[in-house]
Simulated scan of single mutants.
Amino acid sequence: MDLKPGSRWKSAVCDVEVVVVRPPKTPATLECGGYQMVPHGEPKPEGKEIAADFAEGSQAGKRYADEETGMEVLCTKAGAGTLTIGGRPIGAKEAKKLPASD
C-alpha cells in the first residue's frame, strides 16, 4: 500500500473517501469498515460488508491521525465505516484553539 501525500483512497465497503495528508513513518495498512482501502481509481471488491466492530462512521471534512505511525488523512466523503490502521481505530483530530483577539 503506497500511502503518498495527496494519494486518494476509498473504502471497499462504504462511501468513505480520504486523501493522505501525511504518510506513515513506517509501512502501514489503511483500512475502513474492517477492510483494506483501495486506490480511488480502482473498482471496489464485490460481496464485502462493513464489519460490526468497525461501523462507527467517518465524517467528511475531518482529519484523522494516528500518533503511533504519524499518518494523517483528510476524509473527503463521509460513510459508515471506521478508519483504522492495521486494525487499530484512528480518531479525528481536534481543531486547534485560536488565541482570542481583544
Score class of each variant (00 low, 15 high):
A51W: 04
A92V: 07
V21Q: 08
C75V: 15
E42I: 12
P45G: 10
E42D: 13
T82C: 06
A12G: 07
G87I: 05
E68L: 15
P5H: 01
A28V: 10
D2V: 13
Y35R: 06
R8N: 07
T26H: 01
G81M: 05
P89Q: 04
E17Q: 15
D2S: 08
S11Y: 05
K48L: 15
D66M: 07
P45A: 08
A95K: 13
K48Q: 11
I90D: 01
A52H: 11
V19N: 05
Q59S: 14
K96T: 11
G41N: 11
G41Q: 10
S101T: 13
G6Y: 02
P24Q: 04
G33T: 00
P89L: 03
E46K: 14
K48G: 05
K96D: 09
E68K: 15
K96N: 01
L30P: 05
T82F: 04
P99Y: 12
A78E: 10
P43Q: 07
G61R: 08
E67L: 15
A55D: 14
I50G: 07
H40F: 15
P45N: 03
F54L: 07
I50W: 03
A51P: 06
T76Q: 09
Q36T: 15
A28K: 01
R22C: 10
K4G: 01
T26D: 07
W9K: 02
A60N: 04
D102N: 09
G41D: 12
T26P: 00
G57Q: 08
M71V: 13
V38C: 03
E49I: 11
A51M: 11
A51T: 06
T26C: 00
K97L: 13
Y64S: 08
P5N: 03
I85R: 02
E72K: 13
A95F: 06
Y35D: 02
I50M: 09
P89Y: 04
C75K: 06
I85K: 00
I50K: 07
A78R: 04
T84F: 01
D15A: 15
K48Y: 08
K77E: 06
G81K: 02
M71L: 15
K62T: 06
Y35C: 01
E56I: 00
G86S: 05
S11G: 07
G6K: 02
I85H: 00
D15P: 02
M71P: 07
G41T: 12
T84C: 14
S11W: 04
D2A: 12
L74W: 11
A78Q: 09
P89S: 01
A51H: 12
R22P: 00
G81P: 06
T76D: 02
V18N: 03
C32P: 05
L30Q: 00
A52I: 12
R88Y: 09
V18R: 02
E46N: 11
A52L: 12
K62C: 13
E72I: 14
P23Q: 03
Y64H: 11
Y35M: 03
P89A: 04
G47V: 12
E67M: 15
E56K: 15
V20C: 10
A12K: 02
